[in-house]
Design a protein around this nucleic acid. Structure first.
Lengths: 126, 126
DNA sequence: GTTGACCTTAGAGTTAACTATAAGCTTATA
DNA sequence: TATAAGCTTATAGTTAACTCTAAGGTCAAC
């Protein structure tokens, strides 16, 4: 069980940001102390990491809410709805993957070229 | 040669957004008419598409400025600087790729499960 | 030659996502 | 037991990235 400062340290997100995510319904502390202090489980940590990952790859908080609901939600949507949302999000993820792969290739080529230059002529800089 | 409205249509970005990108030094029209109308070449279009792609995968406009400078800039940075920036950006891209791949896997599994359910019991919905 | 769609620049307004401040309660340490 | 660090909620402020408005110039079509 982690306190919010410990969760903050583990995830690299500020306690303020965690509060912001909670206010927007993305995360929640599984437990509270008598006095109301938040306590987080391993499962909570994984959820926060997921939000961080999705955020980092360009999904909005609203998108992320949908992504999370796919994993959890067996009640508030019909099967067909869940399937549709999942497919739509998967398409988005795949599109981003393709885009990133082409960017990766471009950068890798540039780096390889730099390295070749350095190797063949002993590092004469600009 | 495309006018700004045509570029807007081709890229799906509004003329306002294109102006915003120009003001921030990310893109530019290769040519202007007598009266000052912007005209864009194929190369301009590719640059805009690159900005759009990077934006969509979670890079800030500042990041994108750096990414673009790697591709173009042979003068304002030393070789070593360019190599360092390139490597840093490549690391970022690779990290995002890993994150997206794990998300893709999660979603694909969910979808496969849905399909299996549908197949094995003839589509009895919730 | 005038009308309407499109272009220009400049600047104001909006939204998402933080980020910080404040006032007060809790809890471990000296 | 007091003092400081950490927690609570609520609310205000900031920043990036658009998005819109306005005032006026351009250009093709009628």
């Amino acid at each position: 069980m982690l306190k919010i400062s410990e969760l903050s340290e583990q995830t690299g997100l500020s306690a303020h940001t965690l509060g912001y995510y909670e206010k927007h319904g993305l995360i929640n502390a599984s437990n509270r102390s008598e006095a109301g202090y938040r306590f987080y489980t391993d499962s909570d940590v994984r959820r926060v990491e997921f939000v961080k990952t999705a955020r980092n790859t360009g999904f909005s908080l609203e998108d992320i809410g949908q992504l999370l609901s796919i994993r959890v939600d067996k009640l508030s949507h019909s099967c067909q709805e869940v399937t549709d949302i999942t497919r739509k999000k998967l398409d988005e993820v795949n599109a981003k993957l393709l885009e990133l792969q082409s960017m990766q290739q471009t950068l890798q080529l540039l780096l390889d070229k730099k390295n070749a230059e350095r190797t063949e002529q002993g590092g004469a800089a600009k």
